[in-house]
């Protein structure tokens, strides 16, 4: 199913700060500071960024596992995940998550049958033991596991197989959105491609919309229609994958891409932008543009005013001196 322009999930100006701001010294960690995005039906939105950029916090807010301090997430235009009330069952069922570490996200005392069937039980989607088993078998087949394995426990599987179980569980309720937080980074490189291909296939056949969060730029490019690049809690750049990778508009995106190792020795002597130092601490982020302390384009303006995420068409960048799209 080709991605349509109808938004399923939208986030508006999300903020999240961790830590006790009353008693803590120097304030909390500003994990996410004003992120807005939309996810269209059937598309894959990739989110890349380094550790501490807030991509996992964003993921947890998108599925309602974490409440934003301000801003809201809407599902088909209906807000949820703000305020205090419980998240409506109907939304929970339609927005699911796949976690990074398949071993810690699967209960070691439950069989695969019970793990995959748990969402079915919670949402009353399978009546009777026969129907429950049949549905779990179907889901396991969908992710490339033999249904006979359903009575085994998570430790009896390899890392790649466990991630397949996690994906089957996420798909059990027929979700419209699956948020994947680093779904392949705990896997061996010879197994990563299996899971990446599986997710791509599932999207094509089921038409589910994916948010794919990872730090590996090449993997994100491979799976995504659109890509967002995060830096210190903000979206630095957001746009169609081919444009963001082909003609990056934000200096951070350019630097990130030139730092990524390329598995071709001939690429060794390419021109590279080396960033100095480490990303600053999210406890005390720089004023204005958060990237300015490491940016080769930074001027006085960047310290004074935070740049808005704007741009021509669908390709947006948050930089006062962004490269205009050709």
């Amino acid at each position: 199913m080709p991605p349509s322009a109808e938004p399923v999930l939208a986030a508006v100006d999300l903020h999240k700060t961790y830590g006790n701001r009353l008693l803590g010294r120097g304030g909390g960690v500003h994990a996410v500071a004003g992120v807005s995005l939309t996810l269209n039906a059937g598309e894959t939105l990739g989110i890349v960024g380094e550790s501490g950029c807030g991509k996992s916090t964003l993921a947890r807010m998108l599925v309602g596992l974490e409440r934003p301090d301000s801003g809201q997430v809407t599902f088909h235009g209906e807000p949820f995940a703000s305020g205090r009330g419980a998240i409506p069952r109907g939304v929970r069922r339609r927005v699911q998550m796949v976690f990074q570490d398949p071993l810690t996200s699967l209960n070691p005392r439950m069989t695969v049958l019970d793990i995959v069937a748990e969402p079915l039980d919670v949402h009353n989607l399978a009546t009777g033991r026969g129907a429950r088993r049949a549905r779990v078998g179907e889901l396991l087949e969908l992710v490339g596991l033999a249904p006979e394995l359903m009575n085994r426990f998570p430790h009896e599987f390899s890392g790649g197989q466990r991630q397949r179980i996690g994906i089957a569980r996420a798909l059990a309720t027929d979700p419209e959105v699956v948020v994947c937080d680093e779904p392949v980074s705990a896997l061996d490189m010879s197994v990563q491609a299996q899971v990446v291909n599986l997710l791509a296939d599932l999207q094509r056949t089921l038409g589910v919309a994916l948010v794919f969060i990872a730090h590996d730029l090449a993997v994100v490019r491979h799976v995504s229609h659109r890509v967002g690049v995060m830096y210190l809690g903000r979206m630095a750049e957001l746009g169609p994958a081919a444009e963001v990778y082909g003609a990056p508009a934000h200096p951070y995106t350019t630097a990130l891409m030139s730092a990524a190792p390329i598995p071709r020795p001939q690429a060794r002597h390419r021109e590279r932008i080396m960033l100095a130092g480490d990303p600053p601490s999210p406890v005390n982020p720089p004023s204005g543009c958060r990237f300015r302390t490491r940016c080769h384009k930074a001027q006085d303006l960047c310290a004074e005013r935070a740049p808005e995420l704007t741009g021509p068409g669908a390709h947006l960048a948050a930089c006062h001196f962004s490269v205009p799209a050709a």
């Binding site: 390899s158 890392g159 790649g160 197989q161 061996d188 490189m189 010879s190 197994v191 990563q192 491609a193 299996q194 990446v196 291909n197 730029l217 090449a218 993997v219 490019r221 491979h222 990778y245 891409m257 990524a260 390329i262 598995p263 071709r264 690429a267």
Partner: peptide, 24 residues
């Protein structure tokens, strides 16, 4: 040979990765 076909190349995106079956 299989490893090289299974990893995506940032500068040369392809439509399909050739996954290696099974696990080490």
């Amino acid at each position: 040979e299989a490893l090289l076909a299974a990893i995506p190349d940032l500068e040369r995106p392809s439509s399909e990765l050739l996954a290696i079956p099974g696990t080490p």
